[in-house]
Every structure is written in structure tokens, then in C-alpha cells.
Amino acid sequence: MSSENKKDEEMKTNKVLAGKTTRRNFMKNLSIAAAAGSAGLVTGGCAGSATSEEAGLKWEEYFKNNYRLMTQKEKDETVARLVRLAKLRDNRDIQMSNQGPHENVLFGYAFNISRCKGYMDCVEACVQENNLDRKSKTQYIRIFEMDPGQLDPTTGDGKFHHEVPVDGKFYMGVQCFHCENAPCIKACPTKATWREPDGIVVVDYDWCIGCRYCLAACPYWGRRFNWGDPQVPEAEVNVDQHYLGNRMRMKGVMEKCTFCVQRTRKGKLPACANACPTGSRVFGNLLDPNSEIRFVLANKKVFRFKEELGTDPKFWYFMD
């Protein structure tokens, strides 16, 4: 995108923001007045002021914008509010980032089906990293035990629990493929899910209304729904969080693999790729011709799952 186009885009966004400011400011002022009012009613007391602070923060959170329409200042404010709320509500000290994408980065992933042994270290690492609900045993990754000659995971066994690898079987991992032309994004009626410039498909949990259209639209079973409030033992909570990534979700919202946005934007490998003991998982920048992922695409036999659907996933399978 040229800089002129960008400026134009910015101006448009600003106009939209300006148009909404009156109503939003009105609501905001109302909220502050309400919070102040309630604080006045409670009249002192340490506990009282804490709860009214919580109520005020929640109120402001309720009237915040869609993440994509926020200015950097608003993003910083909401992150600060969420950090404070975690402290007030759960007495939990978290760090939350709203780090944006790097320029000239497009994330891609490759999975070696001839190396994976089905150890599932990746699944466990993902659960720990992304604060996934332990009660319903939510997992972003599913490993299928497959018969030779089959390349469709629906023919495989996704719930094996025995010594692996089994002779004559191979193992195939499925997760969100971060499609360039993602059907889930088109299905969302509130624009709560979108593709970031570095290719990661993310969800604004605060704009998701839980209709689950995206879950139905995804041909890869890449999305998960929170039927209840996610439960994570306090000692296991990952406090290194990102607004679009592993921050605590709530009841009634969708979530999904984010390529560990909180890690990958800092240059780290996603938790699954980092945990894999067999080196079956290759992650990197598709726009860098020297990257490992580009080597795989150029030199190995690769295929994409359900490529004929035109979803253009950024997740390839390859063989040695």
C-alpha cells in the first residue's frame, strides 16, 4: 500500500471516529457521572471505592470501540483497564500487550506428516500458553492418527490414547489455518473477527456476540466456543497476555488459535512449534525468501487441506 493510500485510509477512519465521538463521549461522561454517583452513595470505605472503581472500569469497557477502530491511545487505555480489572477482580498481576503487526511479515506454517509421532506435546503447550478452559478441555490443536494413504483427517482417529507412534500409522495435526480468504471472517455479523496484516486471523472477544456463525463456516474445525466461563487454575494462568491473543475469555464468545500472537510478534516461535520434540512444526515469515518456511515450500512436497475450497490457508503439510 502506498503512503498516500494509507493517509486516505487514516482520514476515513478518523472521520468515522469523529462522527461517533459525540455519542460515545456522551455515554462516557454518563458513565463517569454514574461511577462518581455510586461512589458518593457508598460514602467512603476502602472496599467500597474498589468496587466502584471496578464498576466504573467495567462501564467504560462496555462502551469501547471495535479494536480495529480504536486509536493507539484507546488501545492503550483499554489494555490498562483490563490489567487493572484483573487486579481488582482476581488479584492477578498480568501484563497485556496490544503490539501491532510488523511490516513485511506474513506468517506461515508447515507441518511434517512424516515426522510427527503423535506425542501431543504441542497440544499441552498450547493449552498452557493460551489459558484454555481446563473444565471443558478446550484444545486448539487436534492430532489425528491416520492410516497410510489417507490424507483427510475425518478418516483418522482424533482421540487416541495409547503408546505412540504405532507402526503403520502416521499423525496429522489440525488447527486454525489462518486462511487468506477466510470463510469465518465473512460469516461474522459483527465484524468481531478479521485478518491482521501479518496474516493472523484474530477475534475481538469483546465484540463477539457468540452467534457461532464462524464456527459453522469454518471447513477446518478451527474455532472453539466458550459454553461456560473458562476455568484455569490460578497457578497455571499465563500472565503474559495480548489483547487479541491469550487474554482471559468469557462465557459465550468464540476463540481460536492466534499463532500465539503474544509470542510471535515478539519474534518467538508459537508455543506448539517451540514444544514439538520432533521438529515437525515449521513456522516463519513467508515474505522472507531465506526463511525455513520458504525452504519447505520450495523444496518439499507440500499440500494444503481442502485447497479446492479457495480459502487459501497459510498452513501446509509436507513430507520428507
Binding site: M120, E124, V127, G158, H161, E163, V164, P165
Partner: peptide, 22 residues
Amino acid sequence: SCHNPHSPAFKTKMPETYSLPL
């Protein structure tokens, strides 16, 4: 780092976790 040079093949073992039926 990954292979024991004297016995380089990966061993069979129980998976780290399990998945619920779909």
C-alpha cells in the same frame, strides 16, 4: 539436541495429553 547419537530413533511413549471425542 534431539537425537541420542548412540540410539537415534525416537522412542514410543504415552502422549502428553488426550483429546475428547469431537
